[in-house]
Design a protein around this nucleic acid. Structure first.
Lengths: 131, 131
DNA sequence: TTCATATGTTATTTTTTCTAACATAGTATT
DNA sequence: AATACTATGTTAGAAAAAATAACATATGAA
């Protein structure tokens, strides 16, 4: 519950999302225009993205690679959403599920790592801090 | 390892950190000036903060509340750093530790939730999405 | 060919962030 | 009390990031 909250929290500016996803601002805005994502807005009207948004964008990229168009991707997303609604009738999580969640988390972390390596760009943001 | 990576990844602009920590930009920059945090910089010289930075800032706030000054906080942080170096000689994590990590994660999530509730401000970023 | 889709490019405006300087309330020191 | 220091506020001006909107275009479908 709190984990989902955090993943849904809109924290990232578009510049970061561009780097994490290797998409241009134009592309990201275009996908929003087509309702594939709906990033939040700051007071000053800046788009603020969540990790969920980043996930979605990464998937959009893949699906586009597979030749699927906006409408198709929208369909895919909608189907998944329905699925989640149906299967989210569990109130507490078991011990085993705990592990599953952790596994999923690590996967997510991997995705980000990959993103940064793929473009070899994020490294610029890591300064060498003394000790 | 990948979890740590993600928590150390500088993704957030100062505006978001201000909201998460309830600190002013002036305060955040001042703490940086005193080396309590060392946020990364974007190409355009923007400060980019990691979740670790947010953690640190939340703690700085607490310590200041307790009447501790910059030098004192620096000391506290340095001590902890040394401790971590000494105790980080484990290469793989046990089953039990897995739980500990998860617990810590949830705590972190809670902090963020608290931050948003305390200021009742982040809610503005959550749009009501259909469904 | 003509049309539609996904994306590039450019111009203009607004918002955000930066640095730097000066101001000040509260503490501590002399 | 007078002075100095600390943490923070405030302001100004410059630079960077991001928004919208319009027009351009390559590719593939009809």
């Amino acid at each position: 519950m709190s984990r989902e909250f955090r993943r849904a929290m809109p924290l990232l500016p578009i510049s970061m999302v561009m780097q994490l996803t290797e998409l241009t601002a134009r592309q990201i805005r275009y996908y929003e225009e087509h309702k594939l994502i709906e990033p939040a807005r700051s007071e000053g009207n800046r788009r603020m993205f969540s990790l969920d948004d980043v996930d979605a964008l990464l998937e959009i990229r893949e699906l586009l690679d597979q030749g699927i168009n906006m409408a198709g991707i929208k369909k895919v997303f909608d189907m998944r959403k329905n699925n989640n609604v149906k299967s989210s009738n569990k109130l507490s999580i078991s011990d085993a599920e705990l592990r599953a969640i952790l596994r999923e988390e690590m996967q997510q972390a991997q995705i980000m790592q990959k993103a940064s390596l793929r473009q070899g760009d994020l490294s610029r943001f890591f300064q060498v801090k003394g000790e």
